[in-house]
Design a protein around this nucleic acid. Structure first.
Ligand SMILES: [Mn+2]
Ligand SMILES: [Mn+2]
Ligand SMILES: [Mn+2]
Ligand SMILES: [Mn+2]
Lengths: 222, 222
DNA sequence: ACTATAACTTTGATTAGTCAAAATATTTTA
DNA sequence: TAAAATATTTTGACTAATCAAAGTTATAGT
């Protein structure tokens, strides 16, 4: 059985792989997302490889084996189903659920997970708009792009918020920057690192590029 | 923060203290309920004492400090509320929930616990009939006694099943030996270690004393 | 009151996961 | 391309939790 530490490493490696469409994740990034020192990440990489979860390429990075990807995908499913439960059933705020799911994902059994999925009506997206992998480990690939990739005057619909930062999520909710909402890009200043959106009721929102990269959207034909 | 190992030790020590009305729990019993070797239990006792959770009396046993009892009571609340959720909301069988709750109890936050309690309508008993401690750590002391303490011809109502053994719980459900059900003791053979119950529909159940000690009941006036 | 048995503790070892700081390799910059 | 900066790995140390087996103490039986 994988420990919850192993589950966390594998899940984060998978998330980076999916979000950035890369095949190898450098150790520095692994260390950063897991909140450990680089040395720790390196030594974990070795033991994860020893146990067949990943391939470790020294000074380059790590990639998941088939076995590792399978476990990681299952963790992502758990995480996102739990987030959905916490919002839909218990009514927690979407800025709190990530931290909660981070713990619960390791404690819930396959059986309870299955019951939960059924109870929730087999949702396909979590509250942040991220797709929930199927039981078989298939994840719907979103064709949405970061807000920062759109041009001025584009009309878009928010698909998902990648960032799990509590403060940013509270801001996003307040400004209606949530999955399903429509906006028009009324300003984009590459040199000033800034994007301005306006929704149908005329409300304006300003985002820096750093944040705009964490909001995925699709073009929308009015 | 207490690790989940610490939480388990404290909770089990509390449960024994409550069930057997003793003030010190011997190390051998601690080791047995936690499924570790006696040496492990002894060394844990020392570190639990070092951290102020328990008092350790060498060659006698351990007792909870106020701080330890508080944490243990909170764990018991989590455990029993989760068991209730798993049966009431997700529809798991009562023979499976103990093992599930054993893991989840360490992963759920105070906030989620509070939401869950509200969602469930603030239940006072878990599916096995055991009282759920209040948020303040108060537990309703049951006045029920083990079945083995009743005499022949006594009419009783089952209050709770202490044992968490999966097979016994399946048997108990099949024979309607569940909280709320009424029986008459139609046979008791001290020498043969056996008790026979009959319910209102004439169905008979036989229990050995070992099992009868794990079923708590109250006298019932017909 | 001895002795055999049971209960408990100690000792020495192991594994997972972590950090700090030193060492090494790679990449960037001038 | 040589130095500086950055990224990664190694080394040595530590804590929590555990076991097996040996040692100690208490308890029970005769
Ligand atoms: Mn999340
Ligand atoms: Mn996690
Ligand atoms: Mn239980
Ligand atoms: Mn537990």
């Amino acid at each position: 059985m994988a420990t919850s530490t192993v589950e966390n490493y594998l899940k984060e490696i998978l998330v980076i792989t999916l979000e950035e469409s890369v095949s190898k994740v450098p150790m520095g990034q692994v260390a950063r997302v897991l909140g450990v020192t680089p040395g720790t990440a390196t030594s974990m990489a070795k033991s994860l490889e020893r146990d067949g979860w990943i391939k470790y390429f020294p000074r380059v990075g790590v990639s998941l084996t088939r076995k590792g990807r399978k476990l990681a995908m299952n963790m992502l499913r758990r995480h996102r189903l739990l987030e959905t439960f916490l919002v839909e059933t218990l009514g927690l705020d979407w800025s709190e659920i990530h931290a909660e799911a981070e713990e619960l994902e390791h404690a819930i059994s396959e059986k309870v997970l299955e019951k939960l999925d059924e109870f929730l009506g087999r949702p396909r997206f979590d509250p942040h708009g991220d797709p929930i992998p199927s039981k078989g480990g298939v994840i719907q690939q979103l064709s949405s792009k970061p807000l920062s990739d759109f041009e001025k005057d584009a009309e878009i619909r928010i698909e998902s918020i990648i960032d799990q930062d509590k403060e940013f999520l509270k801001f996003a909710r307040k400004t209606k920057l949530v999955p399903g909402q429509r906006f028009k890009i009324i300003g984009k200043e590459d040199c000033a690192d800034s994007i301005t959106l306006k929704n149908s009721r005329g409300k304006e929102v300003n985002l820096g590029f750093r944040s705009a990269e964490k909001v995925l959207a699709l073009p929308f034909e009015s």
